[in-house]
């Protein structure tokens, strides 16, 4: 294993790579490979390690897909935040003369970069403003439902025979209830608007998370390292937070990243039914549903919000992929950082 002596010359460039396997013996009873001073981590490892979160983010950033995702999401968030500054027109002002006006590069005469919709509103300005609500819904609803699902999933897996059974039956019931019907009921109770939609989208998603992780939690509960923590006196709460949660975080992050896009679309579905954001307010989703009516006259009013939506989903998925890898300590930055191997 420690074949430093007979490495071919081509390998010489890698000589700074530490010999990883050093099964030596400091108390001198077992013969070791001659000349190797084992057990010394050397200078390669700093005494002070970075925090767990920083390490994860650094790893995710080191992943090309993660970097693209972060940059893309950053640009979209910037565009949403500064929409009032960068949007060329007021997104709700209707210019009847420009109804269904084509984008300027397709011969449109009114100078709208991405054309105008069937009510003569600038599509570019609407996309920029629409991003705000859609990103808000996507990030908030996905994050809240992920946290809720993680908590309930851990509880369901830990108390698999009692609370777990109850929660899983509740999840079954929820699957049988049409999402839209609950949305209508909630809106009837609370009135239409963004609030109720955000609440229902946040609360509805827990089942997927809980179902996905409950089994893994039940397995981790039986793992030796959990038994070890118990014999050392760790309480159930501590074990759930310190030992169980990190072990099931990877699927939660993946689900979180994929659900953001789904939730953004769900919001548009609800607003189509008059449950979500109402005109003159709008989101990317409501632009899609408004635009499809006049799809043959002004396809650009659907294509560009759709593209923006696609970019959001893409950014989330790329970040999710990178985070999933970064959460696993054994997926290291090996190729770039040999001393961390």
């Amino acid at each position: 294993m420690n074949n430093d002596h007979n490495q071919p010359p081509a390998e010489a460039g890698k000589a700074h790579m530490p010999s990883v396997v050093t099964e030596g013996d400091p108390w001198g009873s077992v013969p070791t490979v001659a000349g190797i001073e084992p057990q010394n981590a050397g200078e390669a490892i700093p005494r002070k390690a970075p925090g767990r979160l920083r390490e994860i983010l650094r790893k995710a950033w080191g992943n090309p897909s993660g970097r693209v995702g972060f940059v893309l999401l950053g640009l979209l968030v910037l565009a949403a935040v500064f929409a009032p500054l960068i949007a060329p027109h007021d997104p709700v002002v209707q210019t009847l003369a420009a109804t269904n006006e084509a984008p300027v590069w397709l011969g449109g005469e009114s100078g709208y970069l991405l054309g105008a919709d069937s009510l003569g509103r600038d599509v570019l300005s609407r996309v920029l403003h629409g991003l705000r609500l859609s990103l808000l819904v996507g990030i908030v609803a996905a994050t809240v439902s992920a946290l809720l699902g993680l908590t309930l999933g851990i509880l369901a897996g830990w108390y698999e025979d009692t609370l777990g059974k109850v929660l899983m039956r509740l999840a079954d019931i929820q699957f049988a209830v049409p999402f839209v019907a609950v949305g209508i009921a909630l809106t009837a109770a609370l009135g239409p608007g963004l609030g109720p939609v955000l609440v229902i989208l946040s609360v509805w998603g827990w089942t997927t998370y809980a179902r996905t992780i409950a089994n893994s939690v039940a397995q981790v509960k039986r793992a030796d390292f959990v038994t070890a923590a118990r014999t050392l006196g760790a309480g159930t709460g501590r074990i759930m937070v310190k030992h169980v949660a990190p072990s099931v975080l990877a699927p939660v992050v993946v689900l979180w990243s994929t659900s953001a896009g789904v939730l953004i679309l769900a919001e548009s579905g609800l607003s189509l039914l008059g449950l979500g954001v109402q005109a003159p307010g709008f989101s990317l989703g409501s632009m899609l549903s408004d635009g499809q009516v006049a799809l043959r006259l002004s396809w650009w009013a659907v294509l560009f919000p759709g593209t923006a939506l696609l970019l959001i989903v893409l950014a989330f998925n790329m970040i999710g992929d990178a985070l999933r890898d970064a959460f696993n300590p054994s997926s290291s930055l090996a190729p770039k950082n040999p001393e961390l191997v």
Binding site: F225, T227, A228, T231, L232, G233, K242, P246, S247
Partner: peptide, 23 residues
């Protein structure tokens, strides 16, 4: 916790599963 957990512990067969890989 005060009596037994404080003064006893366990060593396991498989060291790969007895240490939490995330810590």
């Amino acid at each position: 916790r005060r009596i037994l957990r404080r003064r006893s512990s366990m060593v396991f067969q498989n060291p790969s599963t007895s240490l939490n890989g995330y810590m």
